[in-house]
Structure formats: structure tokens, C-alpha cells
Design a protein around this nucleic acid. Structure first.
Length: 501
DNA sequence: TATCTTACTTAGTAGTATTGGG
DNA sequence: CCCAATACTACTAAGTAAGATA
């Protein structure tokens, strides 16, 4: 990891060295006391060379490797469940390595140990053949619990959390759960007006607890914030709605010509920054002033609220309603609305795809799904611009040639007419290509820091996309790749062009 | 009632595989 | 056909939320 950013962080190096020393003999401990005097360069170079060697392998060697891997997947990558063969999502144990917590994680750099069979629990059917542990080892436990979906589990040593082997998203089990998730979100659509009316009413409640709950719910609904469970001290300091602290919001009576503006600025899941300047209703603003009265940095904004309390309340508003259902609901709703708004039925497939991506992007922005700017983005934009310039020149040339040929064709023979025709077709083709390039340019730049796949995979009812494709004559492969198609097979079968979320 | 445990979904990144334009 | 750019896959951390336990 020597070339990684992690290595510039003190916490990372300190944690690593502490764990490293634990693995030493007494003699080694006496010698190796100062991390700064350790030089791992030679090991680093060894692994780099390994990687180079892999890259430089011949076609045959690469093919052999591929076959080897496929054989492994074939043997270990599947299981039988309820008489059906299903793909497993992660059939390999997590190998040892250095813990790479996100953000300012206090445990980054700690050594993640290798797991042995004696630490692994197996969960299989009573009558199924128990997988054989490695020679000379025994499983920690073999159980037959058909109320859970995991096939194997172990406890990871850095955070002490249980890790599971589970099914692939393409499995029936996962597909059914996904389906249920979207059906719950659709049920929310039926009661959302009432819920909104209720929480607006509760902004006026005499009870502080109720007011806080109502304002928090407003944020969850309007901004698609996460619930915000409490976290331990030994994790990165991130927050969601219920765990917001006073330093995460700023109140402005007026900001940039808008009134009653709340500026949110906090580290969310994966320590991704959430920054948003939001104009809110006067009553919400007043409430926030009240909530923040006599509080200092570090105090909870919603001191009378947590996710359990909120979810208990939500359960009473609708069966199965929790905070995260709002995120699913508003994401899918946004996609549907944006597709309705942005799709022009007469447009080309390329233009329709741009519209789809824009709708998808609106959701990603709502949910704050970010990514780091891809390596070489700027260069690839420049290349694209250059291509566009070249294409424009080609069109200019072609146009004037076409013009001349047409003139010649007017007084000329059949042959000249055919030539003019040909040129005309070429011109059309060039113009098509230019348009495609220009669309690509817009799309790529707008997307550089936005991750579309997260919402596509987890928040957007796939039936909306399926219906849109069918209605607009867009092949499904244009919006779902192969993996996504197997994950969403249920939706592809289920939805016709008239499906509405 | 608070805290812990469990099981599951959601998230971004890194490395590999594929593609498509010269 | 080659190689750079893009797309996809594997990986695993980090959330949500329910239920058990102190």
C-alpha cells in the first residue's frame, strides 16, 4: 500500500505498527521499535513486479488463468436452495490485509487477520452435505437455520462484526426481497399526502419531541436524508438526519436572494460530504432556531429524537414504513417524473438515452451519490472536444462538396445525380455522428462526480426503466448491463409499457 | 430504556475485462 | 489489430433496522 494515500496518515501508520509489533517475537520487538526506520520498499517492489508480470502474461497464460478461475466459481460459487441452484454473491473469505476504513476512521491500518475454518460457521439444510473444511481443520459450528439467508459467517477481528456469505442479487430470494421493497415504497405513495399534511401540522405541536420528529421527517422526505443511527466512538464520525449536530446546520434568514435558508454541511455515509443550501418553510426555520437555542457545538440538533423513536412513529403511519422507505420512494418517484418530463417520443435512441441518464442523474443528486473524478477525465474531455472539432471540419468539407455535386447533377447525367445522392447520405451520416459526440460530451461532463449506478442498483424500481424502454423502443441492454439484467429479471418479466410506479 | 447482537441493504473503489476507433 | 478509454466485477466497509439482553 506504499503508493496509497492511507500511508500519509499518522493514524494509519500508528495502528499498523502497533499491530505489526504484536506479531513479532521478543527479539524482534527489541530491534524493531520505530516505524520511521522501517523500509518496506523491497516488498513493495516485489508485489509491483508481480502485478507487471500478470499484465505482461501471454494470451495463453491469461486464458489459463481465466479457466482456472471459472473452475473455482463452478465448484464453489453456487448453492442449492429450495431445490434450485443459485449463484452465491461472495463465496470467498475476506483475505488478511490492512483495514481500510473510510474517512477519518480511528482503526485504519489495523491488521485484518487471516480466518481459519475454526472461526467459520456453516448454515445449511439439515439433510444437505456439509461442506468439507480444509484438511485437519473443523468448522466452528454447523447449524441449520432456515429463518436466515446466510450460508456461512465469521467474526472479523478489527471491528468485531459478523461477516456473511450470502446469495447473489440474481437469486430468487434477493429478487423477491427487492420486489417487496419497491412495493412498500409504492404503498407509501398512497398515503404520502396525508403523512405530509400531518408532519406539517406537527411543526406547531406543543410537544418538543413531536416538533423535532416532524422537522426531521420533513428533511428525510424532502432531502432524502438517511435515518442517522447512533455510532460508536471507534468509528468515523459521520451522521444522518437523526444524528445531526448543531455544527452541521447553519441558519440564514436570507442567503443569495433566498429566504429561510438552511445550509447543511456534514459527513454522511462513507464520509461523503453532504452540502446543500435549502430554502425551507418559515415554520421549519423557526423550529430549527428553537432546537438550537442554548446549544453548543457537539450537541444533538434533535435531542428528543433517535431512529428507533422515529421508526416506531412511522410504523403507525403505515405498515412496514421506516425512514429508508422515503429514500426509495422519492428516488423512484423522481425517476418516473423526470422521465415523463424529459422524454421526447420522436427523439432518436441516443437522445432518449441522454434523457434517461439525466433522469437518473437527478436521482443521484437527490441521494448525494458521489464518486471521485475518474482518472484522466480532463484528458478524455479534451480528446472528445478534438474529435468534435474534427467532425465539424469534415462536415464543412462534405457540405461544400455536396453543394458542388448538386449543381453538377442539375444539368448533368444520371451518374452525377447518383454521386450527389451519395454525398448527401454521407453528410447525413456525419451529422448524426456529430450529434452523438456532442451528446456524449454533455453527458460525460455532467457525470464526472456523480455515481449513477448506486441509485440504479438500489433505489430505482427497475420496472420504471423496463416500461420506459418498452414504450420508447429503447433496447433494455442500453440501460441495464448483463449483471443488472440478471438482477432485475423479475422486473423485466413483470412490467409492460404501461407500468407506473 | 439503553445497549448489544444479528442480518440484511447500500456504498464507493480498485483492479480486470472489454470495446471501439485509428 | 492495437491500445487507450471505458465498462464491469469483485470486494468489503458502512449503513439501516429489528429483536434480544442487560
Amino acid at each position: 500500500m506504499l503508493n496509497h494515500d492511507y500511508c500519509t496518515k499518522d493514524v494509519f501508520n500508528t495502528n499498523f505498527f502497533k499491530d505489526f509489533r504484536k506479531t513479532m517475537t521478543d527479539r524482534e520487538k527489541e530491534i524493531i521499535k520505530d516505524f520511521r526506520k522501517c523500509n518496506f520498499q523491497e516488498m513493495f517492489e516485489f508485489f509491483q513486479a508481480e502485478s507487471e508480470r500478470r499484465k505482461a502474461a501471454t494470451k495463453d497464460e491469461k486464458l489459463a488463468k481465466k479457466n482456472e478461475n471459472e473452475a473455482l466459481v463452478k465448484e464453489y460459487g453456487f448453492c442449492m436452495i429450495d431445490g434450485h441452484k443459485e449463484k452465491i454473491g461472495n463465496f470467498r473469505l475476506e483475505p488478511p490485509g490492512l483495514f481500510r476504513g473510510r474517512g477519518e476512521h480511528p482503526k485504519m491500518g489495523m491488521i485484518k487477520r487471516r480466518i481459519g475454518a475454526s472461526e467459520v460457521s456453516i448454515n445449511c439444510g439439515k439433510n444437505s452435505k456439509v461442506p468439507t473444511p480444509p484438511p485437519g481443520q473443523r468448522w466452528k459450528e454447523v447449524r441449520h437455520d432456515n429463518t436466515v439467508t446466510w450460508l456461512a459467517s465469521w467474526v472479523e477481528n478489527v471491528q468485531g462484526q459478523v461477516k456473511y456469505i450470502m446469495l447473489n442479487p440474481s437469486s430468487k430470494l434477493k429478487g423477491e426481497k427487492d420486489h417487496i421493497k419497491y412495493e412498500t415504497a409504492r404503498r407509501l405513495d398512497k398515503v404520502i399526502d396525508k403523512i405530509r399534511a400531518t408532519y406539517r401540522d406537527e411543526w406547531k405541536s406543543k410537544e418538543m419531541r413531536v416538533r423535532q420528529r416532524a422537522v426531521a421527517l420533513y428533511f428525510i422526505d424532502k432531502l432524502a436524508l438517511r435515518a442517522g443511527n447512533e455510532k460508536d466512538e471507534d468509528q468515523a464520525d459521520t451522521v444522518g438526519c437523526c444524528s445531526l449536530r448543531v455544527e452541521h446546520v447553519q441558519l440564514h434568514r436570507e442567503l443569495n436572494g433566498k429566504e429561510n435558508v438552511v445550509v447543511f454541511d456534514f459527513p454522511g455515509k462513507d464520509s461523503i460530504r453532504y452540502y446543500n443550501e435549502v430554502e425551507v418553510e418559515k415554520r421549519v426555520f423557526k423550529n430549527l432556531e428553537l432546537f438550537m437555542e442554548n446549544k453548543k457545538e457537539g450537541d444533538d440538533l434533535f435531542d428528543r429524537l433517535n431512529t428507533q423513536v422515529l421508526n416506531e412513529h412511522l410504523k403507525e403511519l403505515m405498515d412496514g414504513l421506516t425512514a429508508k422507505v422515503f429514500r426509495t420512494y422519492n428516488a423512484s418517484k423522481t425517476l418516473q417524473d423526470q422521465l415523463d418530463k424529459l422524454t421526447d417520443g420522436d427523439a432518436t435512441v441516443a437522445e432518449k438515452l441522454l434523457a434517461y441518464n439525466r433522469a437518473n442523474r437527478a436521482v443521484a443528486i437527490l441521494c448525494n451519490h458521489q464518486r471521485s473524478v475518474p482518472k484522466g477525465h480532463q484528458k478524455s474531455m479534451e480528446n472528445l472536444k478534438e474529435k468534435i472539432r474534427a467532425k465539424r471540419d469534415a462536415i464543412d468539407d462534405c457540405e461544400s462538396e455536396y453543394h458542388d455535386l448538386k449543381k453538377a447533377a442539375k444539368r448533368g447525367s444520371v451518374k452525377e445525380k447518383v454521386n450527389a445522392d451519395k454525398k448527401g447520405k454521407q453528410l447525413e451520416r456525419l451529422k448524426e455522428q456529430l450529434k452523438k459526440l456532442e451528446l456524449q460530451e454533455t453527458d460525460r461532463d455532467e457525470n464526472k462526480t456523480i455515481a449513477l449506478s448506486t441509485s440504479k442498483l438500489n433505489y430505482l424500481d427497475p420496472r420504471i426503466s423496463v416500461a420506459w424502454c418498452k414504450k420508447n423502443g429503447v433496447p433494455i441492454e442500453k440501460i441495464f448491463n448483463k449483471t443488472q439484467r440478471t438482477k432485475f429479471l423479475w422486473a423485466i418479466h413483470m412490467a409492460d409499457e404501461n407500468y407506473r410506479f
